[in-house]
């Protein structure tokens, strides 16, 4: 039998690209944000089809950058939040597609694996986004400068401790 097909798994790849489109939409508030996001999406697309993790990483970073930049101009805080989740989901699912393709190949039955993984990523993102949204609703009315400073300081420390 000829060698198995080790190209990226189709289900995860499709979901990744879908998430990428959603992220792009979330970034569509100002020109720069959209341009950055679109460029990122293109790189992600390339990486997901050409089996290149580097392209996926770079693309996701640009996509995320676009979402962050666009966040400032949004009236509703929920959209950029879910845009951020969509970015991470796009990044992870593209990487997952490549991984599964390399280890198992297209000929193997991987539907369940991919669906469960996509679900897990979405669930974590949803939880985080909800937490963020609640924080926004509760706290972000009139923020004193010092509060912001402490928040920032705390976040630095926490995230430094949280290096994955």
């Amino acid at each position: 039998m000829s060698d198995p097909d080790h190209r990226p798994a189709t289900l995860s790849r499709t979901l990744a690209l879908l998430a990428g489109v959603l992220a792009m939409l979330a970034a569509a508030t100002n020109t720069f944000a959209v341009a950055l996001a679109a460029g990122g999406f293109a790189a992600l697309l390339l990486g997901a089809f050409k089996n290149t993790r580097r392209a996926v990483d770079t693309g996701a970073m640009a996509l995320g950058g676009g979402v962050v930049v666009g966040a400032g101009s949004h009236a509703v805080a929920a959209i950029p939040l879910f845009g951020a989740v969509a970015t991470v989901a796009a990044w992870d699912l593209a990487g997952h597609a490549i991984d599964v393709g390399e280890q198992l190949g297209r000929g193997a039955d991987t539907r369940r694996l991919e669906l469960v993984h996509a679900g897990a990523v979405a669930a974590v993102g949803l939880a985080a986004a909800t937490a963020g949204f609640l924080l926004y609703r509760i706290a972000f009315r009139d923020v004193a400068l010092s509060t912001l400073v402490f928040l920032l300081f705390a976040s630095i420390l926490l995230m430094a401790a949280l290096r994955e």
Partner: peptide, 17 residues
């Protein structure tokens, strides 16, 4: 230690809110 410090400062920040 870093994490503990971060949590402490976070508490301060939330308190300040």
């Amino acid at each position: 230690a870093l994490a503990a410090l971060g949590v402490a400062v976070l508490a301060l920040a939330l308190a300040s809110l």
